[in-house]
């Protein structure tokens, strides 16, 4: 009875062993492949961190120069107490983001501010201009009909005044007759922190009806028009600089975290890899030894 069954069991056992062995070999191979790819990812994130660190130092230096500029541009609106006209609800929001991702929540932060505003009542009078592809990607699905134009090619190179001037020109010639608005951007605080802030936008009519405008001397509409256009460009320039700096610093942190996570993963994978390899070797040894013992 036993003799009759024994060969069958034996083949079954060897089959199982074979299967397990091949599975082990396969996992070994799979782990080593995985390990290699994670190592590659870590290399990439590390070098991205280096690149954004270099870009960040430059952006930060340039931002320091742009700060008084931006503050100076807003001063007039502050001091002349320009307010949004109540009878004209048309508003324009400008989302200052960039084309590049992998930088934490800088783009979602800006888009969220606008999304929250658009989900409130009275949103039908609000139009949005997206600067950078990222804000468009986020806002397009739900609020596509609010977007009037999109600017891209932002974020590859440090922003210049030319970019801001082009943007300002596009806003002026967009054909949308807004009464007031906001530029939503990321304000840089330190390497680890930034927050969403806004700069005011006004139409010429709103400025002309400002309560304290009368004290300003020798104003005609031509001067006001040129002044407004230039200050729009200055504010956009400042917002671009702030955004670029926040983005680079945030990318630096994001990439640093990614490298750290990849390191952790590599550690765990190496451990499993070595364990599996050891198991395979041990089992092969056992097989050889037991085979030799059976021959004696």
């Amino acid at each position: 009875m036993l003799g009759r069954f024994a060969p069958g069991v034996c083949t079954q056992v060897t089959m199982v062993v074979n299967q397990q062995q091949s599975r082990n070999m396969a996992t070994l191979k799979a782990i080593s492949m995985r390990l290699k790819s994670v190592k590659n990812i870590q290399k990439i994130t590390q070098s991205m961190k280096m690149v954004s660190a270099a870009k960040y130092t430059r952006a930060e230096r340039e931002l320091r120069a742009a700060r008084p500029y931006g503050e100076g541009a807003v001063q007039f609106y502050d001091k002349a107490e320009v307010a949004a006209p109540e009878d004209d609800p048309k508003q324009l929001y400008i989302a200052m983001t960039s084309d590049r991702g992998l930088c934490g929540a800088v783009h979602t932060g800006v888009s969220k501010v606008i999304r929250n505003r658009l989900s409130e009542p009275g949103a039908e009078n609000i139009k949005v201009i997206c600067v950078g592809d990222k804000s468009r990607a986020i806002l397009q699905r739900l609020y596509g009909k609010h977007i009037i134009s999109v600017a891209n090619e932002i974020g590859r190179l440090p922003p210049t005044f030319m970019d801001a001037a082009k943007l300002a020109n596009a806003i002026m010639t967009s054909g949308y007759d807004f009464a007031s608005g906001k530029i939503i951007y990321n304000k840089f605080k330190s390497v680890v922190s930034y927050s969403q802030a806004d700069l005011p936008l006004f139409s010429q009519k709103a400025i002309e009806s400002a309560p304290k405008l009368a004290i300003y001397d020798s104003l005609d509409s031509d001067v006001l028009q040129s002044y407004m256009e230039f200050s729009l460009a200055s504010m956009l320039f400042y917002a671009l600089k702030e955004g670029a700096c926040s983005e680079q610093s945030s990318r630096m942190t994001a990439m640093d975290n990614a490298s750290k996570n990849a390191g952790e993963m590599i550690e765990k994978l190496t451990l499993t890899f070595n364990r599996t390899r050891q198991a395979v070797i041990t089992r092969e040894l056992i097989e050889i030894i037991s085979g030799a013992a059976a021959l004696e």
Binding site: Y69, G72, Q75, K79, A80, F161, A165
Partner: peptide, 19 residues
Amino acid sequence: SSGTITVNDDSSVQVLAEE
């Protein structure tokens, strides 16, 4: 090259130039 001049009523002056 170009830019704006703002003189405010608190006597602060801002000259912002493009270049």
